[in-house]
Design a protein around this nucleic acid. Structure first.
Ligand code: ZN
Ligand code: ZN
Ligand code: ZN
Ligand code: ZN
Lengths: 137, 137
DNA sequence: TACAATCCCTCTAGTAACTATAGAGTCAAG
DNA sequence: CTTGACTCTATAGTTACTAGAGGGATTGTA
């Protein structure tokens, strides 16, 4: 059973262009081709694309996915490498969360500066943005 | 007192190329030029660049900063517009935090799947990534 | 059989916000 | 006078797609 690209895209919840893109950057092997040069995908292709899409839904970079695919191909176990890779990603996500938390605090503080219209000549928010300490000097 | 681009970059903690980039996309007005065609910046330029950099440190998109700069220029108060803009950004940050939180949960669950080397033929992490439910069908 | 609506193809360029080259000119110190 | 640090322009690369142009293929319907 072979599927055309539109079918494949629908089944993996991604756009046709994205499927072609994965092929272009070497994440997805070349599909078969019909007489009219249409791409034709097997179940294996579909499975690999699902793998990729699920990794992407976890926000893994394509480079990591590439590595995971290689590890998956090989017959041996690679728990160590795989765990390292996932742990690194978890660390990235933790860092992003931390910095977003900081950001949120700063933004709320900034937002609190505005005392409402009429309270001053220029909005305190703009004043704060202009006269910060961190970017002076 | 006029500053060359390297000095300006150092004082605002950004790269020389970034300063030129802001000029190119119209966030920073054209500086003066020396006889040898070097960019020369006034204190006003410096202040505006600080404004931009501080907004960027809050992760505001350049488009928002452009709008803030316009609002700042005008003599009247614009608390309403400014607050709307900041609130929208805060909402974006909140959304990002929420989705990162979800992501973290999923990743930790995935990480927990690995029972260590020797426990199975292929690492459970890879198995989980291959056989997810969300990307089937 | 004719025709329209979909599908698919390749190739190219655009997105955000920079970053990094290449190849050249300028300037101050030793 | 030469070395090194600075600057200039113009162009391309980064990430992971997305959108479009301009063309063929397929499918369903009248
Ligand atoms: Zn205000
Ligand atoms: Zn600041
Ligand atoms: Zn394992
Ligand atoms: Zn999935």
């Amino acid at each position: 059973m072979l599927y055309r690209i539109g079918e494949v895209a629908k089944r993996t919840d991604c756009k046709v262009e994205t499927v072609r893109y994965y092929e272009q950057v070497g994440l997805l092997p070349q599909p078969y081709r019909s007489d009219s040069n249409y791409r034709l995908y097997s179940e294996e292709h579909l499975a690999q694309l699902r793998f990729i899409r699920h990794c992407r839904s976890l926000d893994m970079p394509l480079e990591d996915i590439r590595n995971l695919l290689t590890l998956r191909e090989q017959p041996h176990e690679h728990c160590a490498e795989i765990n390292t890779l996932v742990d690194k990603h978890i660390r990235r996500v933790n860092e992003q969360m931390a910095s977003l938390g900081q950001l949120r605090k700063s933004l709320l503080a900034l937002r609190g500066q505005c005392a409402g219209p009429g309270s001053s000549d220029t909005c305190e928010i703009v004043r704060e943005l202009s006269a910060c300490e961190c970017h002076q000097e």
